[in-house]
Design a protein around this nucleic acid. Sequence first.
DNA 1: AGAAGCTACTGAACTATTTGAATAGGTGTG
DNA 2: CACACCTATTCAAATAGTTCAGTAGCTTCT
Lengths: 195, 195
Amino acid sequence: MSLKYAVLAALLEGEASGYELSKVFDVSLANFWPATPQQLYRELERLAGDGLIEARTVPQERRPTKRLFSLTEAGREQLGDFAAEPTRRPTAVRDEFLIKMQAMDGVDPAAVRALVEERRAWALGKLARYERVRERLLDGRTEQEHLREADRVGPYLTLAAGIAFERENARWCEHVLTVLDGRRTPAGPAGQPLG
Amino acid sequence: MSLKYAVLAALLEGEASGYELSKVFDVSLANFWPATPQQLYRELERLAGDGLIEARTVPQERRPTKRLFSLTEAGREQLGDFAAEPTRRPTAVRDEFLIKMQAMDGVDPAAVRALVEERRAWALGKLARYERVRERLLDGRTEQEHLREADRVGPYLTLAAGIAFERENARWCEHVLTVLDGRRTPAGPAGQPLG
DNA sequence: AGAAGCTACTGAACTATTTGAATAGGTGTG
DNA sequence: CACACCTATTCAAATAGTTCAGTAGCTTCT
């Protein structure tokens, strides 16, 4: 049900085709509402049918024709209503990796370590990408300037949430690696390393 | 597909009924793999059919009869295999609230503030519950002792991830409230407050 | 005494999401 | 020139997840 509003919110940035949206979702919105291209195309169809967005067909020279969608007044209004309502659903995190961590005690420590290191690398990669988006958003201003004066601060603040999340993720991975180190030689009464 | 392993991992704590699991999922596992009771009952049926868990019926005096499920050797093995494999799916966060934040710039600031304050309260509440679970897990030991010596550290570490996540959440909310304060009187050239 | 709420589970219908593939022309690499 | 990958979209099928309701006896509050 919320994909609808995620799409409307994405179109606040300006008109976009399904394909372009699927790229946007991949980098920024996916942070809090992931969607596959198929979902987006279907949702765009539905929203256009409901008159919340409108489409215009744009033929291109060396590319397939695309359909650009933009918010209608009705769409903008419904999005505004939604955004002012109290939130129904709490955050839902689905994380296969944390299931593995929950069950890690029956597993070869080297395999666990590999998993955690992979996750850490992935978090740091995402962080680097977010930072680049952030530079683009700030466009030379400082954070303070931007947050005080910009027309829209929503996108910056959600990005900041993503950054904090991935930073925390990486930190957690480092903590786990330390813990794994501390358990390599199970501590005897004197805590003497074995070899 | 991962609900399967989430259930198996939950049963590492010992045998449980569907109903009990639905409570466990509500407080701890829901942190990284939410599931409704209906999903759990269906999944338990499937897992029992596949021989990964086994059921025993326990009649009770003043309550309906319940079926307690526990891991079989086959189940334990499949869970171990899964937990050692590289992770296929990256973390998926679905957060209606952040969609609202993305779109917040067209909305009455008082309504936004109310939303953020609600979210902050909710994060702090969850944090308090997590801290209680943490005390119970540590059972008088310090974190260091527990992490070095306990048989299982997985549950503690995933809990720590949940704690870090909610802490970050609350911090982010506070940041947003500060930003909203800074924008109440849009800064003119001289930055003179208007009220 | 009546209402609400908990334990414990089941069923059916519905909506959402994922996966795989197909179409069709264009660009870039070796 | 073969091959892989990009733009841009659509279709079909399968799997996953949500919602609503119902059964049935018990406890707790008013």
